[in-house]
């Protein structure tokens, strides 16, 4: 039995941080373009969309549920905001899109929080239902914005403030706000309690249904923000633009060490998970690897991270019992 040495478990608990640093060093050695401010900024910018969505999903998962519908919800929200942009103008298109997306989140929240149906089944169903909804809405046509250089809508995806790209600012600000909510505000405490032990939460007078409902609204809100960044950056949208995002988002959340059993996890570590995935993808591309190698490498990284995580809890690397 390979026992971790004293102090070992403490390091393994920070497995994600250690792995992150190892990757950063490795990539820096292998590509001279990797370690540059420009490259970092571009990685951050690309990570922002996945990142914003991962923040919401982290809260859902800490609350003891899953959200697999965020990918097609992103398709829905992006198609909607881009399509409405030219029809009713961005100042109306944005609130309409946000409200519509929140409605989808409310459906998730109602089915899972109030009716207490299994979140995997509900959101997996929503994944395909919403994709269907998008196709019905668009009639299968891709949409785009006619006046791509003249609209102020460009600010979300293409703009910058103080020399920092807007997506990075949005992601950073939201991460900070969510971190504060989850660590210092009553709502955050309730989410941890409900995810940790739903029955005991009810026995403590916590309105469990309402808390779960709210986590899905938050998740939908994050998707709406991500859709603004994505729509604004591309200035158009394919019908299935968000396809596969749900898995990348979930990968980032798991990599950040948030327990799929609920009740444990951290917003800041999800940010780390998001950045790690983004840097791996970036590093592999800089090394001239075809983009699909990142799928394989990502999988390996996640498995190792999860393994180190459980090993730290068990105190040993291999264990026949829990």
């Amino acid at each position: 039995m390979t026992r971790l040495k004293a102090g070992g478990p403490a390091i393994a608990k920070q497995g994600i941080l250690v792995a992150f640093i190892v990757f950063m060093i490795a990539f820096s050695l292998m590509s001279d373009r990797f370690l540059s401010l420009d490259n970092f900024m571009s990685v951050f910018r690309q990570a922002a969309i996945i990142g914003v969505m991962a923040l919401g999903v982290t809260i859902v998962v800490i609350g003891g549920n899953l959200d697999l519908s965020v990918g097609s919800m992103l398709s829905f929200a992006t198609v909607l905001v881009v399509d409405l942009h030219d029809k009713i103008g961005p100042e109306l298109a944005i609130p309409v899109m946000v409200l519509a997306t929140l409605c989808l989140g409310a459906i998730n929240g109602f089915l899972i929080g109030i009716l207490r149906l299994n979140s995997l089944i509900v959101t997996l169903g929503m994944l395909s239902a919403i994709q269907g909804l998008v196709l019905i809405y668009s009639g299968g046509q891709n949409v785009d914005i006619a006046d791509q250089s003249g609209t102020w809508f460009a600010i979300f995806g293409r703009g910058a403030m103080f020399g920092i790209a807007t997506p990075i600012i949005i992601f950073g600000t939201m991460a900070l706000v969510f971190h504060i909510i989850m660590t210092t505000m009553p709502f955050g405490r309730k989410v941890y309690a409900v995810g940790g032990n739903p029955t005991a939460s009810v026995f403590s007078g916590i309105p469990r249904s309402r808390v779960v409902f709210t986590t899905y609204l938050i998740s939908a809100l994050c998707v709406a923000v991500a859709a603004m960044i994505l729509g604004s950056r591309v200035m158009g949208s394919q019908n299935n633009v968000g396809q596969g995002y749900e898995l990348q988002v979930l990968a980032a959340v798991i990599l950040g060490g948030t327990s799929l059993l609920g009740g444990a996890g951290s917003i800041l570590k999800t940010v780390l998970g998001v950045l790690m995935l983004a840097f791996i993808q970036n590093g592999l591309i800089l090394m001239g690897q075809p983009y699909y190698t990142q799928w394989l490498v990502t999988w390996v990284v996640i498995i190792v991270a999860v393994w180190l995580d459980v090993a730290a809890k068990r105190g040993r690397l291999f264990s026949p019992i829990a």
Binding site: Y192, A193, G196, N197, S204, G263
Partner: peptide, 18 residues
């Protein structure tokens, strides 16, 4: 364990939960 406590929460947070 099932109804009274959130086992992975701290002593303090369990007491103040309601």
């Amino acid at each position: 364990k099932e109804q009274g406590l959130v086992l992975q929460m701290s002593c303090r947070d369990n007491i103040t939960l309601p």
